[in-house]
Nucleic acid binder design. Structure first.
Length: 885
RNA sequence: GGGCGGUUAGCUCAGUUGGUUAGAGCGCUUCCCUUACAAGGAAGAGGUCACAAGUUCGAGUCUUGUACCGCCCACCA
């Protein structure tokens, strides 16, 4: 394919006109589909962490999409059948709240319109807004197979949820029971342990005297929640506590209610804490609940679902929990029962959503006993069937799965997968079935009503890697693409989601759901603060993409951090990476503008290459090998940074500048060869960069000579050791160092950049090298070709000259009128001091027998070379100083 | 209470298995609108790698401890 003319490449890369066009082209060409790799290709599969349908794109999405797209694009380029299954999550509570808010704005409510209408409205809402988030994923360049897009509440996935529920029920792992759960009074639903955060807060510790039924004695007790006194069913002391031993077995009276409760002994009580006596409220405290189980105590619930007090609270019934606390305490003060209060810092359970106080309550809910699957999940990681990256999260994994507790899976919501359990109105039997039953399986009655509750959203997300591929049907996709390859997600949902997927995958498919878990960190603001609307520090990915382009955002997210580490996102970095995209763009413009008839692609012929040619190709293949190694270790960020450095600091800064010698010269063969090398190296870099910054690389690739239709389906570069050329690299290193030295001298003597200077180089052993590369000095150090001499030895070095000494090479720069002997002496002396210091260090190291004996040969010889070079530099400098002085 | 992470240049961060004179971006200084790119180029300044001890020929990197910051888990009222 002929390259596009330079006229089509504006001076500045225009991402706005590029991104959408390319994305549509890729998608319409079918390149996001795994089938393009052919039937024999090894699959590489990622299930997207489904964003909430309610969601608006934030940096967390941008990060995971960038990472997963990087992985998928890389896999695609290496010939794998790359499949990225997209979709979204119905997000029970979040979505329900959105629609409730909408109804509220219409002056009505969920309860008023009824369940059926509410669900209709929610689906309507989903149709309207549900595609917003996926559109935003496209904007990021996500190369998902959109034909396979799924929604956790669609028909197939609902069938999967039914199947999973029924299977676990049949295995006795799912059961309905009355236990202590976390109740969210605002949302009016149970939530799981994971959805509760415990936060340290300033509270009060209330001391009071518990009255006893017989006699005037009292038992002092401390509590942080006086209102729960109304639900007390015992007072406990430690069995070996001398102070209270006599009280055990007696009867206490609940303040204000005068309900009789026993004084018991239990080792759970900490004698050191508070008064050493503990009031027991089994209905509203998990520990007390356990103690009540042990002692067969009554359980009294004093709270309604909205956290007002119920009839068990006697005169306090109907009051809000906090009002009841104040009133009860006031009443007790009047009654002379209180002792004192003191400020007290303690952990308070709060809802992850909204932060309201969670009430532990006794409630009838559905639970899943996942201890078996948890063990299977532990084994899968221990025996390496699942690899967690970075490895340190294995410890967290172990700890959580080892201490797992029953999972409360029912939610008192309407938006979600309804629990497939039907209660018989006649015999009370519970029918759990895959298909809606018409009659009771026990008595045949047709008077059935379905459980009103829905399942925890994570129950359906837990099936995601296989439900999206068709499970429980044995579909071709399930057979070919399961288990999936990579699960990439944030470490914050390791338990919520990853653990559930592993447990459910192992349980239902008898296989791991994925081979690798790659955990990314959280994106914070520039100063490490969590982004929030309240703090006003949100960096909106959409705005960033509008201003700097998608590639700039992606590259920043991908190279800004190491696996599992949080990252602080700074706009200045995004701008810098926008500049990088522009830099590559202009490197390509340079190439394209210098193309003539021939447009060779692929590796250049090995013969006839110049030193810089061999150098840049050698460097390229070092890079390819390094990038491969880094990809294998999932160190994508480091790989990206290395490509960046190579392209900017070696290809653009040096090779392109050097290439101008040939391109602006007369030698047609040299021109052609140089164009070939320029093209080849850029092409290989674009391939490696494509998974990071897909848009600008594809756009450039279309402009330069290339074989094949598109970069997105081009082959990933392969390292070729035969291109490695240590000699060329060493030669170029010397030349570059010398040129930098000359530039430095020019700057120090304030020689105008436009002024061509004379240079006389005493090259010593490097004569052949330097003599062959005279043009480099002419062009890169702006030396006058007429006044450049290169000799092995100089008999009569000029007096009035600045000197640059690099190894055994000495360059004399007769800067007429500018060189002050004293200043030059000072300058050389400073350099000499530096070199002498380095020599001392190097000599000491080499004099150390331990070093020469133990260090690898390569390290030692490198050190010897370094020392020799330094010594040669020192000699030159000394010689010159003597000549001047 | 247990566990994990961080501490590297003024700011934000890299540094893969220990091995050249510890890097990048932004910011700063001087110069340059040189025919790919001023979103650029050239030359610079700037770091006792938190602290202490240890292992080693050699430590930013490994071990132990300390300090500070952050996160996760956990049933002391």
């Amino acid at each position: 394919m002929a390259a596009n003319p330079i006229e089509e490449m504006p001076k500045t890369y225009d991402f706005e006109s590029t991104e959408q066009r390319l994305y549509r082209w890729w998608e319409e060409s079918g390149w996001f589909k795994p089938e393009i790799a052919g039937p024999d290709a090894e699959p590489y599969v990622i299930s997207i962490p489904p964003p909430n349908v309610t969601g608006a794109l934030h940096q967390g999405h941008a990060l995971f999409v960038s990472l997963e797209d990087l992985m998928i694009r890389h896999a695609r380029m290496t010939g794998r059948a790359a499949l990225w299954v997209p979709g979204s999550d119905h997000a029970g509570i979040a979505t329900q709240l959105q629609v409730e808010r909408l109804l509220e704005s219409e002056g009505t409510s969920r309860e008023a319109v009824g369940r059926e209408e509410f669900l209709r409205r929610t689906w309507e809402w989903k149709q309207k807004y549900g595609s917003r988030i996926t559109e935003q994923l496209r904007r990021l360049g996500a190369s998902c197979d959109w034909d396979r897009e799924r929604f956790t509440l669609d028909e197939g996935l609902s069938r999967a949820v039914r199947e999973a529920f029924v299977r676990w029920y049949e295995q006795g792992m799912i059961y309905r029971g009355t236990y202590m759960i976390n109740w969210s009074p605002g949302l009016q639903t149970a939530v799981s342990d994971l959805e509760v955060d415990r936060e340290e807060e300033e509270g009060t510790l209330y001391y009071f005297n518990y009255p006893l039924k017989d006699g005037d004695e009292t038992l002092p007790v401390a509590t942080t929640r006086p209102e729960t006194i109304l639900g007390d069913t015992a007072v406990a002391v430690h069995p070996e506590d001398e102070r209270y031993r006599a009280f055990v077995g007696r009867t206490a009276l609940v303040p204000m209610l005068n309900r009789e409760i026993p004084v018991i002994a239990d080792e759970y009580v900490d004698r050191e804490f508070g008064t050493g006596a503990l009031k027991i409220t089994p209905g509203h405290d998990p520990n007390d609940y356990e103690i009540a189980q042990r002692h067969d105590l009554a359980i009294v619930s004093i709270l309604n679902k909205d956290a007002t007090l119920n009839e068990n609270a006697g005169p306090y019934a109907g009051l809000d929990r906090y009002a009841a606390r104040d009133k009860l305490w006031a009443d007790m003060e009047v009654a002379g029962m209180t002792l004192r209060t003191e400020p007290y810092r303690h952990a308070v359970p709060r809802s992850q959503r909204g932060g309201e106080l969670i009430e532990p309550m006794i409630s009838t809910q559905w639970f899943a006993d996942v201890s078996g699957p948890a063990q299977a999940g532990l084994d899968a990681v221990r025996d390496g069937r699942i690899q967690i990256v970075p490895e340190r999260f294995v410890k967290v994994w172990e700890h959580w799965l080892t201490n797992i507790r029953p999972w409360c899976i029912s939610r008192q919501l309407w938006w979600g997968h309804r629990i497939p359990a039907w209660y018989c109105d006649d015999c009370e039997h519970v029918t759990v079935a895959r298909d809606d039953p018409t009659e009771c399986e026990a008595c045949g009655s047709t008077h059935l009503h379905q459980d009103p509750d829905v399942l925890d959203t994570w129950f359906s997300s837990g099936l995601w890697p296989f439900s999206t591929l068709g499970w429980p049907e044995e579909t071709p996709d399930l057979a070919r693409y399961y288990p999936t390859t990579m699960m990439e997600t944030g470490y914050d949902i390791l338990f919520f989601w990853v653990a559930r997927m592993v447990m459910m995958g192992l349980s239902f498919t008898d296989d791991v759901p994925f081979r690798i878990v790659y955990l990314n960190g959280l994106v914070r603001d520039e100063y490490g603060k969590k982004m929030s609307k309240m703090a006003g520090n949100v960096i909106d990915p959409i705005e960033v993409m509008d201003e700097y382009g998608t590639d700039a955002l992606r590259f920043t997210l991908l190279t800004g951090t190491a696996p599992g580490n949080d990252m602080n996102l700074a706009i200045s970095r995004i701008a810098g990476n926008r500049n990088f995209a522009n830099k590559i763009w202009n490197a390509a413009r340079f190439l394209v503008s210098n193309l003539e008839g021939d447009s060779p692609t692929g590796p250049p012929p090995g013969e006839g290459l110049s030193l810089p040619d061999r150098w840049i190709v050698s460097r390229l293949h070092h890079l390819i090998a390094d990038v491969d190694r880094l990809f294998e270790g999932y160190l994508y960020g480091e790989a990206g940074r290395q490509i960046y450095d190579f392209l900017w600091s070696e290809y653009a800064d040096w090779y392109i500048e050097i290439s101008k010698i040939a391109l602006y010269g007369e030698d047609e063969a040299a021109k052609s060869r140089t164009r070939h090398v320029l093209t080849y190296v850029l092409d290989q870099c674009l391939r490696m960069l494509h998974p990071f910054i897909p848009f600008v690389t594809e756009e450039i690739w279309q402009h330069i000579p290339h074989e094949g239709e598109a970069l997105i389906v081009a082959r990933w570069p392969e390292p070729d050791p035969s291109w490695l050329d240590e000699q060329a690299e060493a030669g170029m290193a010397t030349l570059m160092e010398l040129i930098r030295g000359i530039r430095n001298a020019r700057a120090e003597y304030d020689v105008p950049p436009s002024r061509r200077i004379a240079a006389h180089i005493e090259a010593g052993e490097a004569f052949d090298l330097l003599d062959a590369q005279r043009e480099l000095f002419t062009r890169l150090a702006n030396v006058d070709a007429e006044q450049l001499t290169v000799d092995a030895a100089l008999d009569d070095p000029p007096e009035q000259a600045a000197v640059v000494a690099i190894g055994g090479i000495t360059a004399y720069l007769p800067l007429a009128g500018l060189v002050d002997i004293e200043a030059e002496q000072a300058r050389l002396q400073k350099e000499l001091d530096e070199v002498v210091g380095l020599i001392a260090r190097s000599e000491a190291l080499l004099a150390n027998d331990g070093f020469t004996a133990n260090a690898p040969e390569e390290v030692v010889s490198r050190e010897r070379d370094k020392l020799a070079r330094l010594q040669a530099t020192r000699d030159s400098l000394q010689e010159r100083l003597e000549a001047l002085g």
